[in-house]
Design a protein around this nucleic acid. Structure first.
Lengths: 346, 346
DNA sequence: CTGAAAGCGCTAACAT
DNA sequence: ATGTTAGCGCTTTCAG
């Protein structure tokens, strides 16, 4: 058999210097004679050396890896797992988070480990993973309101940053959107269009995002002279949007506009409208939220409130990185502004 | 400050035994007195000990991590990155792969690191990652035909398993579907329905999956007495399905059925048909491929050829695991059978 | 500017 | 059945 993977020792011998010097060259530490640097680099080339990350981590106490965890509140056992994963990926939102996170991580040669925390057991795994030092910190995206993970992470003093303020209060960092302002934007646009009989398909009302988007919309309508807005609660999925819209239409057949708290539900809304023979936007104008891929996939393309998910995700990674480096210690929040994107649905 | 994380040493002292014994208990090695086991477990509890993975990996030479890499052929620089990630997540297929992989990994407390290999540089990162021992092996899903990664992995003798046979030949393991049989299934179903003027929106013809699904379909039609099938090549995306269908309809306005090589394109096909006032399936029957979430999201719900992606992904992880454990050494292939799922579109 | 040496925390022979 | 001991490959004082 050929000799196994080369170590620092091998490179040092090959270059005729000490291990320490090779280490310095590899890690780009200053104070190394340029001539020797070349020597070492050639030796590295010849031996095909690659530093062993475990050995490195053991002394630096850094894994160069962060956990990207999608967390639910449930306590489902195995059975639910597949569904949970599937649901997460069905939402175009998650892909954007990954895009943003990877964009920040990659140039720093760090990598995300994907974890799903949809049961007590899975959550324990996440915490253990961090305590083991397998990952330097966690980026968490919660899908449910009562998710206990953020609090657990905070209690364990583990570096972590959440996407959106956790419903369960905890001293933890997060990035979030000014959801309320987003709702306001939607209301103003509909008002400007002349709509006076709006309705809304809200997000889950136990989620801050659900509440605030609704509050902002109502507030905007109220200020615009429309005191009452029929509401049907949805669950941020296409199906829930369909169901909510059917309820709304049954009780309020004369509405002239709908604000859906995310694009997936807006898509459901459009589908129902179409099936009922109502034209969008002529008969009923529809405004979504997120500006996800669903907004463009929808017929007609959705006018929607853009949430800069990629930028938010990158900021989340950046914050975490600062914690890991010890440059930051206090829990921090970073709030982004929404923006109206006008297309054809309203 | 409180003393930092407890080590084996601390637990050993606390329990009044040697490090070795504690290690044995923790790793469930036999030959340890039950009484002492309890003692140790209590000490672990009291100290809140968690094994350090880096130290462990250093000696076991196992990271308990595998790389889940999505690989393209491109050589795009930074700019393309975001798009690539977004495109990957937009396809419901990838979520199913993750579900299957995680399902296998989780019970073994192993975790997937997400990597995107859409440039030479990124591919180098993947190879280095494995050589560093940060991951024990790679699971690769290629999105393009000329993806050089599988060959690179094989050349480096790195443990790896691909989803689908790589277009670039290499001595590497993979799981795949009997695509040809899938095409046959679609043809037979359409034939049984009485369709005699079929057309097909194929996948990219430089991809084995694209070629074989098409070949199977044509073969089936031929055997059923239909010698000619108009074809338009697509790219497995919704938009490409729309474009392909428009071309098809322009040149062959009298077709009575369409076989699309995946559900996303079938969705596009249905959309075009609907816009042109053709009823599905009354005027034109449509059969998709994959049975992804897009099949159910489509109106009408798609009759499609099911690809057991989750099971295939789990098999991929299992194969890799066997390589990592050294239980398997020769490149291996595992082929799954497709299955027709009849819904409303055909 | 470079080398020698001391660990990082753990597992696995080898003793006992 | 348990303890002793030697590393795994690397970074990092500390001398020189």
């Amino acid at each position: 058999m050929s000799k196994s993977v080369p170590t620092l020792e091998d490179v040092a011998r090959e270059a005729g210097v000490s291990r320490a010097t090779v280490s310095r060259v590899i890690n780009g530490v200053r104070n190394v004679d340029p001539g020797i640097q070349d020597l070492v680099r050639q030796a590295v080339e010849r031996t095909g050396y690659t530093p062993n990350q475990a050995a490195r981590s053991l002394v630096t106490r850094r894994a160069q890896t962060i956990a990207l965890v999608v967390s639910g509140a449930g306590d489902e056992r195995d059975g639910g797992q597949g569904d949970f994963t599937a649901r997460v990926f069905a939402d175009p939102f998650f892909g954007r988070v990954v895009t943003g996170v990877v964009g920040f991580l990659r140039p720093r040669s760090m990598h995300p480990v994907l974890m799903f925390a949809d049961s007590d057991d899975a959550r324990r795994q996440v915490v253990d993973y961090l305590r083991q030092g397998s990952a330097d910190g966690a980026l968490v995206v919660s899908t449910h309101a009562e998710d206990p993970l953020p609090a657990q992470l905070a209690a364990g003093r583990l570096p972590a940053v959440c996407f959106a303020r956790p419903a369960v209060a905890a001293p933890i960092s997060y990035v979030d959107l000014a959801h309320r302002d987003g709702g306001l934007l939607a209301a103003r646009h509909l008002l400007a269009r002349g709509c006076r009989r709006p309705a809304t398909v809200s997000g889950p009302l136990d989620l801050p995002a659900g509440q605030e988007r609704l509050a902002g919309f109502r507030d905007g309508m109220e200020r615009g002279g429309v005191p009452y807005v029929p509401i049907a609660e949805g669950g941020f999925t296409l199906d829930s949007g369909v169901a909510a819209m059917e309820r709304l239409l049954a009780e309020h057949p004369d509405i002239d506009s709908v604000f859906a708290a995310n694009d997936l539900m807006a898509q459901g809304v459009c589908r129902v409208l179409r099936d009922r023979g109502r034209r969008v936007p002529e008969d009923v104008a529809v405004v979504g939220f997120d500006d996800s891929s669903a907004a463009l996939a929808c017929r007609p393309p959705l006018t929607t409130v853009r949430q800069p998910v990629e930028a938010m995700a990158a900021a989340m990674a950046e914050l975490l990185h600062e914690f890991v480096l010890g440059e930051r210690t206090e829990p921090t929040s970073r709030i982004f502004d929404p923006e109206l994107v006008v297309r054809e649905s309203a």
